[in-house]
Design a binder for these strands. Structure first.
Lengths: 332, 332
DNA sequence: CTGAAAGCGCTTACAG
DNA sequence: CTGAAAGCGCTTACAG
């Protein structure tokens, strides 16, 4: 350990140490070409030795951006992060502690952030207005409520995904098909259940209200709702799980009920998290391209930061059914 | 949308707009108290309207820190992130693209970073030297190789974990116990297998070299090694999986081989990722406190940033066995 | 190539 | 409370 200097190095102090003028040091720091190689080398060495860092940061090049999660507790989060970091943004991860109002925007600007991506937020109309006025570009991923027209947002085709999942079960021969959605007021959950209903209606099947339940998108919600459904006098032969995590809970509920998946109960998830491949049996699920959604949000933010217009404020990326081993024909 | 101004607002331009002097605006920006309320309010409003951001950033308060992952593709990552963000650091997530040498350190300093946490890196002695010289505090989590004495690092008690997992299987009555480790040269994997050997020896059991295999810590490694093990003339009745992901692969290998877990094969993992609870059956595993490791690394970095000394450069957090449903007595 | 000089955005005593 | 003045860290023509 070298002894610490009393004060941070400045261009002036480095200039003195190198025996050159201050502007010369400035040129070396900024990579200007009109400096003699020997001089440059000497100054460079001193800059490194003293660990010089300029006080004034040029903020034009760096694309520091906040990605705000309501909770950093889901495998969801990594997938989205992967996408956002892919497009050349420097990503600061932060939990959402405040409403996204004026204070929040000011703190972002003060921290040198060029924009923000907010994941699954619950934005009041007032919040949305605040973001609109902020002049700091913000893109929203999968908002809980329908976003205002002027809030750029990225989502997935949840309705189409719910439709595909349910049609798959119908095509296997299932007639008693249940669904466990997420919280009732979530936009994405309502859309998935909407797709479920549409598939049943198209197949000429009655929508039995007792087969439509709501969890919290987490494991326990799936487990508890599935236990209830399996205790019904006329239990379902298939359950659309609303999320992968809920589907895992449903599979576990089947196991403790002595039912085999898929022989006694078919289960479909939604998300296609990496561990959908890991479950036993591997999970049939609706793939939601989370990393692509992150990438798309990142690219939109990139454009906004550079003052370019967006083609559209609302993007929905396609979902598609991934067939694995958790679904099959019902026992005849 | 208001029309964009041609140039960014400065204290001077705001002062003109507000009809006050430049120093007064400076005081408002910096929260000094000697400004009349009415003046403050007027200036404040103009600052917000023009979205004023100072060119010179005070960097003393903000604790912007890089967390570097070799790959952002594991649920591992979120757990560690959760811990680091918990201790009041602002975390920039970045993939490791360069060797952690001088260029890397310079780019961190230029980006205003106050330090860095590097997760599971493979650090050559040269890299470690470079970090030592850098004067930028760096803490390492779970390095692949034995870290040098002067590199602050956080790990888990891998040997003790391997011991506990294997002793648990021995106590259930298993005698043919296999292990699937990670890559052979990984420090953490060697320690876990060391614990496995110690447990067998303590129980007076022979260590059969054909029951010690190496995967890549990923699902497929566990699956492939388990298929090999289960095809052995005298197959194991229990497998210590080396990581949760590998354990999931082992469970799946058992399923496709027509073996029930835990009745025909007991499986123990290592990590206790959130989805260890989600597997079917829920996974008995060795808990590695990833979020705590992140928190610890964050706190160490905090101290280093503030120039405080560390109590010790190497911290190992305790692992412990979590009993769930994937282990049981062997069929007699 | 080098550096004296002007200038920019900002902060900080300090006089009123 | 307010702001003229000095000063700090830096950049940018531009003269040599």
């Amino acid at each position: 350990m070298q002894p610490e200097e009393l004060s941070r190095p400045t261009l002036a102090s480095i200039a003195v140490a190198a025996g050159v003028s201050l502007p010369t040091v400035s040129k070396v720091v900024n990579g200007k070409l009109d400096v003699a190689p020997a001089t440059r080398a000497r100054v460079q060495r001193l800059l490194e030795e003293h660990n010089y860092v300029p006080v004034v940061r040029r903020r034009v090049e760096d694309l520091l951006v906040d990605v705000v999660f309501t909770a950093l507790d889901s495998p969801w989060a990594v997938e989205i992060l992967r996408g956002v970091t892919d497009v050349g943004l420097e990503v600061v991860v932060s939990p959402l502690s405040r409403r996204p109002g004026r204070d929040w925007v000011q703190s972002l600007l003060a921290g040198g952030r060029r924009g923000a991506i907010v994941v699954t937020p619950r934005l009041t109309p007032a919040d949305q207005q605040a973001l609109g006025r902020a002049r700091l570009p913000v893109v929203v991923i999968d908002p809980v409520d329908m976003p205002g027209q002027d809030v750029p947002s990225v989502g997935a085709t949840n309705w189409a995904g719910g439709l595909a999942a349910t049609e798959h079960l119908v095509s296997l021969g299932h007639r008693r098909i249940a669904v466990v959605g997420g919280p009732e007021d979530y936009l994405c959950s309502r859309a998935r259940i909407g797709g479920y209903r549409a598939a049943l209606e198209r197949a000429g099947l009655h929508v039995d209200a007792s087969l439509v339940r709501h969890g919290d998108f987490r494991l326990d919600g799936g487990y508890d709702r599935a236990r209830e459904l399996l205790r019904l006098p006329d239990p379902p032969t298939a359950i659309f799980g609303g999320s992968d995590e809920q589907a895992f809970g449903i599979i576990e509920a089947a196991r403790v009920s002595g039912l085999a998946v898929p022989d006694d109960l078919s289960v479909v998830g939604f998300d296609d998290l990496p561990m959908a491949r890991w479950s036993s049996p591997p999970l049939t699920t609706v793939r939601q391209p989370l990393a692509d959604m992150g990438r798309m949000a990142g690219r939109m933010l990139h454009r906004l930061i550079h003052g370019d217009a967006l083609d559209t404020n609302r993007v929905e990326l396609a979902t598609h059914l991934v067939l694995r081993a958790s679904t099959g024909a019902p026992r005849s």
